[in-house]
């Protein structure tokens, strides 16, 4: 039982909270701008590498590099929006989707040019952990990642629920034409969405880097689970994205838990982890395309 917690369930929740940070952005952006932002994973990578530079330059912990990385994430998001998406606001969705695919390739190449193509880590050596119970150990980093993700998610929630701009964001996600008629500054709302999406993605990238390692394709590789989480929760529904992310994270980890079959063979080889997210996404799209929280249809 403790094995289930230590090696599958808890890491699943960690992975889920990292996915949640990315999936909230994907979901909010889809709600406001009506397109699937394929470069979102690469925004995560960018955030992770900005932090990596801070870590190597100033010899600080990656947690201390979060503010710099958030600034970088916001900057690049707003720049990309102005240059690559804003000219296509009135165009068909597919134009924006293709544009974001192009942005994704560009971002990854820029990262490779600046930081190289090798795997990097924020720190090496054995990562400290604490014993919660007999045989149940938690890495200290996992505690920080979870606390960090949950506080950011909570802050986002407070913003969406209580601020004028946050409410305007939800209003625009409901109906952008009515938002315009009501007098809402739609461009301002779009900028705010990029600020939130860009910050959360940057932090997600750092957390992913802490949990695993850095590589130029680290974010791109998460795109499938991010979208699976957003779709599972109901696209355009940030709260749904959080629930979806947790389910996907835990499902991916549990898929290789050996205890289910009663023998010591894993249910699925860990190599098929991403397949689990893909499977959930396809099933949802076929049977319940609006997701668990009644989002928009793709």
């Amino acid at each position: 039982m403790t094995e289930l917690f230590t090696y599958y369930l808890f890491p699943g929740l960690i992975l889920g909270s990292i996915y949640a940070l990315g999936a909230i952005g994907v979901s909010l952006l889809f709600g406001i701008l009506r397109f699937a932002h394929f470069a979102h994973g690469d925004l995560m990578t960018f955030g992770a590498y900005v932090a990596f530079s801070m870590v190597t330059l100033f010899n600080i912990s990656p947690y201390m590099a979060i503010p710099a990385s958030i600034v970088g994430g916001i900057g690049i998001s707003i720049l990309i929006d102005k240059v690559c998406y804003r000219p296509f606001r009135q165009s068909k969705t597919i134009v924006l989707v293709i544009s974001s695919l192009g942005v994704s390739l560009m971002l990854r190449s820029i990262i490779q040019i600046f930081w190289g193509v090798d795997y990097e880590v924020y720190f090496s050596g054995i990562q400290p952990s604490i014993d919660v119970a007999e045989d149940f150990r938690i890495k200290i980093h996992h505690i920080w990642i979870m606390l960090g993700s949950f506080s950011l998610i909570f802050l986002t929630h407070l913003f969406l629920k209580n601020t004028k701009l946050g409410k305007a964001m939800r209003a625009m996600s409901d109906d952008s034409e009515l938002a315009l008629i009501t007098g809402i500054h739609t461009e301002r709302v779009i900028t705010a969405t990029w600020i939130i999406g860009g910050s959360l993605a940057a932090v997600a990238g750092i957390f992913l880097g802490i949990d695993t390692q850095l590589s130029p394709s680290m974010g791109w590789d998460q795109l499938l689970p991010l979208f699976a989480a957003a779709i599972l929760g109901g696209i355009g529904r940030p709260y749904g994205a959080i629930a979806g992310a947790m389910i996907i994270g835990v499902a991916e980890e549990l898929s290789s838990y050996p205890g289910f079959l009663g023998e010591n063979a894993p249910l699925l080889s860990p190599a098929y982890k991403t397949g689990v997210a893909f499977f959930i996404m396809v099933v949802m799209l076929i049977f319940k395309p609006t997701g668990l929280f009644r989002g928009r249809q793709f």
Binding site: K164, K167, R170, A171, D174, D175, E177, L178, A179, T182
Partner: peptide, 24 residues
């Protein structure tokens, strides 16, 4: 201007809808 259709924000509460009306 109150359009004929799609003239409320369905996922916002009644009060939030009114808040949005007063956005400016």
């Amino acid at each position: 201007y109150v359009p004929q259709e799609r003239n409320i924000f369905p996922t916002l509460t009644v009060k939030e809808n009114l808040d949005m009306g007063a956005y400016l």
